[in-house]
Design a protein around this nucleic acid. Sequence first.
DNA 1: AACTATGTATAAAA
DNA 2: TTTTATACATAGTT
Lengths: 181, 181
Amino acid sequence: MGRRKIAIARVRDPVIRQVTFSKRRTGLFKKANELAILCGAEIAIVVFSPGNKPYSFGHPNVDDVASKFLEEEPILDDGIGSSSFEVPNREDLNQQLEDVLAELKEAENEARAHDEILEEYKRTELTQLEELKDSYGKFKEMVKSRLSDLETTESMLLLAEKPVVGTKNKVPRKKGKQPML
Amino acid sequence: MGRRKIAIARVRDPVIRQVTFSKRRTGLFKKANELAILCGAEIAIVVFSPGNKPYSFGHPNVDDVASKFLEEEPILDDGIGSSSFEVPNREDLNQQLEDVLAELKEAENEARAHDEILEEYKRTELTQLEELKDSYGKFKEMVKSRLSDLETTESMLLLAEKPVVGTKNKVPRKKGKQPML
DNA sequence: AACTATGTATAAAA
DNA sequence: TTTTATACATAGTT
């Protein structure tokens, strides 16, 4: 929702993560408030920041909504540890845990590698693109100045003016006149 | 946020109100999930619909976050100083396993999301780059043909020949001859 | 701690 | 439902 799309995955940089948290918590609470008012709904939110600070929002207030919810809670079996199945013994669990930890480590390595690739990509491609745009602009400038005292065809002027691609003005054209000998 | 702007005030029509509730509850929970994953935040939401049906979202789950909040835990015992050679019991192992499985799933999601972004990146940036190069080439061709019977300065020829950037030839130049009117 | 280009959520319509 | 046009949230930037 910003300048770039981001993957929904833990933000690595702690500073960015905190900033993201602040912005998004604000947004979330705003949405919650709108929901409550628009629909006459009761709502409670509690959230702990990356630094483990608690924040809360409630309409009409956290405690009332929370108790109401807890009271009419019939069974809270989320099914994960369903009792009807065989309970694994400790050795099995240890083995599983080790296996999964190994997998996790691998996946994290992969993710890091992908990050690096993406960064590299951004650097090279964007740099190339910007330099090319810049060079293109300079070239056009020079040509125009060279041709200024000659007749110029309509098609040339057209081509020289249109910035070419569907570029959304990421790189503003420089207006400066360069000597270029 | 839709076709029209709406005032934040109780929606009169009960049908619309219920529809609005459904859409916005979905959106809110999605945002909450993103916040939790992006920032590693714990979060719990409970909300009652206009028809007083309860809905909840929790990461890792509603009850843990709620109790943590209610207890206002100062986080005293993080285990650093405790009797450190205890053999973990089965519940601990189960918990660990679940935690790690969750992490693993997350890491896999992350990898997939990054792949998508990288692909998207390749598509947009490379397309732009290619179009720009192509257009640049055409422009140079045209200028050269227009100038063929005029004197051309050394610097212009130089600029016209050099492909500009330190491009690693990921995108081969097209050799085709274009009519150009 | 503000801005703004861009991605998302969603009010209406179909 | 699903789609579409618009308002909004926010990632990256200064």
